[in-house]
Structure formats: structure tokens, C-alpha cells
Nucleic acid binder design. Structure first.
Lengths: 207, 207
DNA sequence: GGGGCGATACTGACCGTTCCGTTCTAAGTG
DNA sequence: CACTTAGAACGGAACGGTCAGTATCGCCCC
């Protein structure tokens, strides 16, 4: 499982405590809240999502939620990111290496629960400022940065052309699966991500 | 401008009135509501959007809004669809014909106002059942159906391969621009849609 | 005279915040 | 090593304000 960025806790992050007095924040409360949040997200969508319901379902206080996250949107994104497994090793084949980057998203989206949770998290990221920053930070760290390394290497080996825009490639890789998750609400087929990276290589392949 | 599906009015559509007595529904009220809705969407996003604000800004009654649309989500989608211009004639070049289908979306998204409105409409379509149906109905009529004709013709002429899935092509064409609009909140470059159709032709072009 | 209209009001739910009383823990004292 | 104490996190409850969706007014126009 992923350990996301902890969404910039409003308080100065519990780990960074120096000379604190009271008890540390309860990780068990946090994970109970995240689990309850995922269930509420899947059941009620983004606009119908309520903090009160999450608190009640997790037997937690709303104040505890706001201690951990600056906004409900950030919590939603964190809850979804926890469903995304770590990326597998990429091997040597160019398509395999690119696919490996986005296959965790496909894996999370291919369960009924993950599909709904990820959909709401994407809505939160698009609608809520804090949530958007958390999500884009994750994309930057887990997708954009490794992708840049791979593409630079492929371009150096003349496997792909050099005239690509990194952000455009990200749109081409992530856009289709997100569109299917959110707008179409259609299931994600096995191999969907592999198809996207194959399409990219056909688009930008040398020659 | 587009004249959307009128979102399946809860009441049997004012035009279809037969032997009515009272006055017809006021189109001026309707367009004032849609204009107010666009402004509220751009300012407050999807979760922060409120019917009361729209009614107040349009000097209309909430009851009037619910007479025209079954849900606020459907109204949001209608408001955004009105910003999408009609598709231009496609010419003969395959890429040009495909680009012509999606260029209206790009055109609407390239203004600051349209960018924000379209973003919220997409969130509504993904989060609200009614809104999603209105949106997908528009996609089916203005994108999917003409695209199917074009692709069938191109496949017959051996310009593209035959082993494509129509829905996958739609994801590839629409996904990137929607991702940029919603998640990235980044401006849409001139020629973005042309690049997508070029990428499609490179992906499925017959060897 | 019936139906669309603006205006108002109402119910139930929710948001974000604030206040409790309790519990737990690190720092300080002897 | 006890033992105290200050401070923080906790569940729970309550708050003022907002909102969705419905209902009910008169008004006015077809």
C-alpha cells in the first residue's frame, strides 16, 4: 500500500514533534477514519459526501478528522491513495516500463470498491483546492518523476522522438482511464493501461 | 450554440403542450437561470454550488428551476453544453474530420470562463446520475455517432485498422482534454485536439 | 380560470467550529 | 525510581449558518 504525503497536516505533523507533552495522535483512529471515508465515498459520491457521516461511522470526533486533514477533500484523496498498490518492477521493455507506472491505478480501479473510491477522489481533486494539491503531489512523485527518467532514457537511445511534452504524455496516459472511471463509470478492462502505453509508443516512436 | 437535450424536463416539455391554458414557460427566465448558473459554477465549483445562489442571481424562484430541470446537476450540464459551438465541416482529410468533432470542446475550454464552467459540468456529470445521463446523451449524439460513421469509412478504405473499440477511441480522444480541464486545471493549448486525433491515427493507422 | 411566475417559509441534513469531560503521555520533581 | 503535572488528543454534543427540495402564497398573463 501507498503511504501518501500525509496531506500536510494542519498542525505541525505529529512525527515532527519536539518536546511535546500529550499523547501522540492515534494511528488507529486515523485508519478507522480512512476506512469509513472510503465506504462513505463509494456510497454517496462527492457532493453527497458528509464529514458527519464519516465521523459517525468511524466512531470518531469531527475534530479528530480536522486534526489530521486540512479539508475533507484532502482526506478523500488520502483514502483513495491508500488503495493504490506500489508499482511493480518494470523490466527492460520500454512499453513494460511505462505500463508498470500506471498499472497500480488500473489495479485499484478494477475492483468495484476501488472504482467508486477512486472516482470520488478524482472529483475531490478536481473540485477542492487542498485535495487537488495532494493528488498532484502524488502524481508528481509516483508518475511524473519516474516517467521523466524513463522517457529521457528512451529518447537518448532513439527509441522515441525527442519532441514530446512531458505533461502531454501524462494526459495521454492518465486521461483515458480517468475519463472511463469518472464520466463513463464503465469498468476498466484488463490491459487498459498497457494499451495506453502502447498507443504512446506508437505516437512517439522514432521515425 | 448547442441546443442540448433539454434534459428531459420533469414536466412534459413546454413545447409539447396541447390544449394548455396558462402561459408557456418563460424562455427568458430559463436563459437567465442558465447564465447565472454558469457564473456560479465558475465561482464556486461543484460542491460549493448552490441552487439558492443561482435563483437569487437570476432573480428567479427555486421552483422555476425545478420546473425546468430534474436536478441541479442536469442544469449544470445544460448550462455548459450551451457554450459548446457547433462542429465545423470536416473536409476530406481523416485527421481533419476527426479533429472537427472535438474542436468545439477545445474552443469552449480555451476561454477562462468556459474552462471553469466545463470543468464543473464534467464534475456534475461524474457525480450526479441525471447530469451524467444528459452528458452521455450529448456525447452519444455529437461525438460517438458521427465518429462511428467516420471510423467505419476510414476502416473500409483501409486508412485505419479494423480492430479498434469505439469506446476506447472516445476515451483516447476525450480523456486527455478532460483530464487537463479537471484534474490539472491547466489551460488547453491551441491544437490540443488536433494532437489527439493525430495520436489516434498513429495508433490505429494501417501499418 | 389554470398554469407559470417570484417570493417566502419550512423540514431535514450538513458544514465548520467550539466547547466539554476524559484519557493518555512526556517532562519535571523529589 | 515513583509521583505529580501540564498539555494534547480523544469521543461526544452542541452552535449558527447554509443548503436541497417541497409547499404555499398572491399575481399576472395567456
Amino acid at each position: 500500500m501507498n503511504t501518501p504525503t500525509d496531506a500536510q497536516n494542519p498542525a505541525p505533523a505529529p512525527a515532527a514533534a519536539k518536546s511535546r507533552k500529550g499523547p501522540t495522535r492515534s494511528e488507529v483512529s486515523k485508519s478507522a477514519i480512512l476506512e469509513a471515508a472510503r465506504e462513505e465515498m463509494a456510497e454517496n459520491g462527492w457532493r453527497g459526501f458528509s464529514v458527519d457521516s464519516v465521523a459517525k461511522r468511524a466512531s470518531a470526533s469531527k475534530q479528530t478528522i480536522y486534526r489530521w486533514w486540512p479539508s475533507i477533500g484532502a482526506m478523500c484523496v488520502d483514502a483513495a491513495l491508500a488503495l493504490i498498490p506500489d508499482a511493480p518492477e518494470g523490466g527492460r521493455d520500454p512499453q513494460e516500463r511505462i505500463t508498470a507506472l500506471i498499472i497500480p491505478l488500473e489495479a485499484a480501479a478494477r475492483t468495484g470498491h476501488g472504482h467508486a473510491v477512486l472516482r470520488v477522489a478524482l472529483l475531490a481533486a478536481a473540485d477542492d483546492k487542498d485535495a487537488g494539491e495532494v493528488w498532484r503531489a502524488w502524481v508528481g512523485r509516483d508518475i511524473r518523476q519516474p516517467l521523466r527518467m524513463i522517457l529521457a532514457e528512451l529518447a537518448a537511445k532513439r527509441v522515441i522522438r525527442r519532441d514530446f511534452e512531458l505533461d502531454d504524455v501524462i494526459e495521454q496516459l492518465l486521461g483515458p482511464i480517468f475519463h472511463r472511471l469518472t464520466i463513463m463509470r464503465a469498468p476498466v478492462k484488463d490491459g487498459f493501461c498497457a494499451d495506453q502505453s502502447a498507443a504512446f509508443l506508437r505516437t512517439y516512436g522514432a521515425i
